[in-house]
Amino acid sequence: MNTSTLKNVLLVEDECDIRLLVTMTLSRLGGLDVHAEPSGKGAISYLAEGNHPDLIVLDVMMPEMDGVQTFEAIRAMPGYEETPVCFLTAKVHPEEIRRWHELGINDVLSKPFSPALLPGQIQACWSKWQQAH
């Protein structure tokens, strides 16, 4: 069982304000190394460059490539078949959340997020993934 601590996180969020807030929350309050990308495409090329984050946080509603498309593209990349992926979304339709879990999304975190809680939620997702692997 992998017992390493969570360190590197990739955040994909098209809205720059939220991108900044999540980045600050996770880095300043959560003590994580956060790399933020504004689009799915950006995320793919970041990973293609050989970067290997421990966990990926994806916004769902994004132009061009949305969260699900980005997720599927990541999973299709060699070496990223298992990397835990969290959705951060304002959409909380139970039916949709069920579908995402079936797709293999590890966790769904709701927007608006609370800076006080978000680092803990990310950590919880990481622990759950570690226990499963």
Binding site: D17, I18, M24, R28, L29, A90, K111, P112, P115
Partner: peptide, 23 residues
């Protein structure tokens, strides 16, 4: 409502970050 929620999320998040001493 959705459009209002996005900027509000940003404002709320910023304020909380400040009050939590993150900056």
């Amino acid at each position: 409502s959705h459009e209002l929620r996005t900027p509000l999320t940003a404002i709320k998040g910023s304020l909380e970050l400040i009050s939590l001493g993150a900056v």
